[in-house]
Design a protein around this nucleic acid. Structure first.
Length: 291
DNA sequence: ACCTACCTGGCC
DNA sequence: GGCCAGGTAGGT
């Protein structure tokens, strides 16, 4: 299940391979995976586009596109601002997968989009459960049309200060886990890394977030950044389906201390970890280490 | 702030 | 054969 570290891993690899490449042909075999605009327009606007940059925002992958057309000297000079460019937006959902491979290699099952590139390779999107989505357009337009949501603070960005986390925790009466999973408050955390961050911080995910002490909030802030950075260094966690662009697994699943460990001994103190449901998600915590 | 639907592979 | 996993959207 791709969360911020898995998406960041894909984005970094993708950036190294596709920036500067042009899409010569796009084949969409599962139109329902495209959420904006209509599938025909989506395919038409992909064809001939050059991929100029790859960024991540929360769990979204953003590929900046441009057309070969002559430099628009007139409009840029007249408006003083460049026109908004299209972005190919990819959300991997639960089982979404991108790969870049030779155009002749057989596509994996559930391949929904194939983009032929000008270097003989293909950029492909596959997604068994189709929880993922593809969109195309200027980012501001996609937000305006509510095709993609407004996202909260980037937990690895400079703006994610202790004060920023404090503001998030003050903004709701829900549990810590529910607040951290809410993409409109903090963008990029999912079930795995919320459980890990809570474990590292010594805070039960069930706690009301308004009730955390200043020390707990400070530990939670440090824990979120630490776990995300460590997971990125390990190229993410492969629990089930997640694979990188080259179909390789991440290694952070070997270092998980809380996620999926309900009923198992705590790796820090040996107490049997508990499993409950918080915010509708399976949740594991150590009743001794986490208060 | 909560609930359910979406979707399918994997497991009992 | 049925249930579970869970990120997100949409409804109440």
């Amino acid at each position: 299940m791709p969360e911020l570290p898995e998406v960041e891993t894909v984005v970094r690899d993708l950036r190294a391979v596709i920036v500067g490449r042009r899409i010569t042909r796009a084949t969409l075999t599962q139109p329902s995976i495209v959420r904006y605009p209509d599938p025909e327009t989506f395919v038409r606007r992909l064809r001939g586009a050059r991929m100029d940059a790859v960024e991540r925002r929360g769990k979204y992958i953003l590929v900046a596109l441009s057309r070969a057309s002559a430099p628009a000297r007139s409009s840029a000079a007249a408006n003083g601002a460049p026109p908004p460019h299209d972005e190919l937006v990819v959300h991997l959902g639960m089982t979404g997968h991108l790969d870049v491979c030779d155009a002749a290699s057989p596509p994996r099952p559930h391949t929904h989009l194939r983009c032929r590139l000008d270097d003989g390779r293909e950029l492909r999107y596959a997604d068994a459960r189709r929880f993922g989505r593809l969109l195309l357009g200027p980012r501001e337009l996609l937000v305006e049309h509510r095709a993609i949501p407004r996202l909260g603070v980037e937990p690895l960005g400079d703006e994610f200060t202790i004060e920023a986390l404090d503001a998030v925790l003050k903004s709701t009466t829900r549990s810590v886990k529910a607040a951290l999973l809410d993409q409109s408050r903090v963008a990029g955390l999912g079930n795995i890394y919320v459980d890990e961050a809570c474990f590292l911080a010594g805070v039960r995910p069930t706690r009301r977030c308004t009730r955390l002490t200043a020390a707990e909030r400070r530990r939670l802030h440090a824990a979120i950044r630490a776990v995300l950075n460590a997971a990125i260094e390990n190229r993410g966690s492969t629990i089930d389906d997640y694979r990188d662009l080259w179909n390789a697994a991440g290694t952070y699943q070997e270092r998980l201390l809380a996620y999926g460990r309900g009923g198992l001994p705590c790796l820090r103190c040996g107490t049997t970890m508990r499993r409950t449901v918080v915010a509708g998600r399976g949740t594991a915590f150590c009743p001794s280490c986490q208060r």
